[in-house]
Lab assay of single mutants.
Amino acid sequence: DCSRLFDNDLPDGWEERRTASGRIQYLNHITRTTQWERPTRPASEYSSP
Protein backbone atom coordinates (compact mmCIF):
# COMPACT_ATOMS: atom_id res chain seq x y z
CA ASP A 1 0.00 0.00 0.00
CA CYS A 2 1.08 3.53 -0.74
CA SER A 3 0.09 6.63 1.11
CA ARG A 4 -0.51 9.81 -0.84
CA LEU A 5 1.59 12.88 -0.41
CA PHE A 6 0.51 16.25 -1.74
CA ASP A 7 3.09 18.10 -3.76
CA ASN A 8 1.98 21.10 -5.80
CA ASP A 9 5.40 21.36 -7.47
CA LEU A 10 4.89 18.28 -9.64
CA PRO A 11 3.99 18.68 -13.32
CA ASP A 12 0.34 18.11 -14.30
CA GLY A 13 -0.83 14.51 -14.18
CA TRP A 14 1.66 13.29 -11.58
CA GLU A 15 1.17 12.23 -7.99
CA GLU A 16 3.85 11.62 -5.37
CA ARG A 17 3.38 8.56 -3.17
CA ARG A 18 5.35 6.91 -0.42
CA THR A 19 5.69 3.13 -0.46
CA ALA A 20 5.21 0.98 2.64
CA SER A 21 9.01 0.97 3.04
CA GLY A 22 9.09 4.79 2.96
CA ARG A 23 10.53 5.25 -0.52
CA ILE A 24 8.97 7.98 -2.70
CA GLN A 25 7.63 7.04 -6.11
CA TYR A 26 5.77 9.04 -8.73
CA LEU A 27 2.51 7.95 -10.34
CA ASN A 28 1.67 9.05 -13.89
CA HIS A 29 -2.13 9.21 -14.09
CA ILE A 30 -2.11 9.33 -17.92
CA THR A 31 -0.07 6.17 -18.56
CA ARG A 32 -0.85 4.55 -15.20
CA THR A 33 2.82 3.87 -14.59
CA THR A 34 5.19 4.67 -11.73
CA GLN A 35 8.79 5.74 -11.61
CA TRP A 36 11.36 6.46 -8.91
CA GLU A 37 12.79 9.60 -10.53
CA ARG A 38 10.99 12.90 -9.95
CA PRO A 39 9.24 13.90 -13.19
CA THR A 40 10.09 17.16 -14.91
CA ARG A 41 7.47 17.13 -17.70
CA PRO A 42 3.67 16.84 -17.63
CA ALA A 43 2.35 13.27 -17.59
CA SER A 44 0.76 13.76 -21.02
CA GLU A 45 4.24 14.06 -22.60
CA TYR A 46 5.12 10.48 -21.63
CA SER A 47 4.04 7.64 -23.90
CA SER A 48 2.08 4.61 -22.76
CA PRO A 49 4.05 1.38 -22.38
Rank of each mutant, 00 (worst) to 15 (best):
S48L: 08
W36N: 05
R18V: 12
Q35H: 07
S47A: 10
W36G: 09
N28I: 00
P39E: 04
R4K: 11
R32S: 14
P11S: 03
C2D: 06
L27A: 08
L27M: 08
T40D: 08
D12T: 12
R41T: 15
S21C: 08
S44V: 14
F6A: 15
S3R: 09
N8M: 08
T40N: 14
L10H: 01
T19Y: 01
R23Y: 02
N8A: 07
R41S: 15
E45F: 08
P39Y: 02
T33I: 10
S47V: 09
T31R: 07
E45W: 05
E15Q: 10
H29I: 11
P49H: 05
D7K: 11
E37C: 05
T19S: 11
S44A: 11
D12Y: 12
S47M: 10
P42C: 07
R38A: 04
H29W: 05
R17H: 11
R18G: 07
F6W: 06
D7R: 05
S48T: 12
G13S: 01
Q25A: 09
N28R: 00
I30C: 10
I24F: 03
S44T: 09
T33R: 11
L10F: 01
R17Y: 13
R4P: 15
Y26T: 01
D12R: 12
P39I: 00
L5F: 06
I30S: 09
E37V: 06
E45S: 06
T31I: 03
Q25C: 13
L27F: 08
N8C: 11
P11E: 04
T34L: 07
P39H: 09
A20Y: 03
S47E: 03
Y26H: 01
Q35E: 06
P42E: 05
S47D: 11
Q35R: 04
N28C: 06
S47P: 09
S44P: 02
L27R: 07
R4H: 15
R18H: 10
T34Q: 07
P11C: 05
Q35S: 11
S44R: 13
Y46L: 10
G13E: 06
R32Y: 11
S3W: 00
L27E: 12
P39K: 00
W36A: 07
D9H: 09
D1C: 02
N8Q: 09
S48R: 09
W14N: 03
E45C: 05
W36S: 07
R41E: 08
S47R: 09
T33N: 13
R38Q: 03
W36T: 15
T33K: 15
P39N: 04
E37G: 03
T19H: 04
Q35Y: 08
G13Q: 03
S3K: 13
R38W: 01
T19P: 09
S48H: 12
L5M: 12
T19D: 12
T40R: 13
W14Q: 01
N28K: 00
P39Q: 01
T19G: 08
Q25G: 07
E37M: 07
R38Y: 05
C2G: 03
A43R: 09
T31C: 12
D7Q: 05
W14C: 00
T34E: 07
E37D: 06
R32V: 09
S48F: 07
S44N: 13
D9I: 15
W36E: 15
S48N: 06
I24M: 03
P11W: 01
S48W: 06
T19K: 02
P11K: 03
E37F: 01
T34S: 05
T31M: 06
R38H: 04
E37Y: 01
T33P: 02
L5T: 13
A43C: 05
Q35A: 03
A20S: 11
T31V: 03
Y26M: 00
F6G: 14
R38K: 03
H29D: 04
S48Q: 07
S3V: 14
T40C: 14
A43I: 06
R17S: 11
E45N: 02
R17E: 08
G13P: 00
R38E: 03
R41I: 15
N28V: 00
E16L: 09
P49T: 00
N28Q: 01
T34W: 03
P49G: 11
G22W: 00
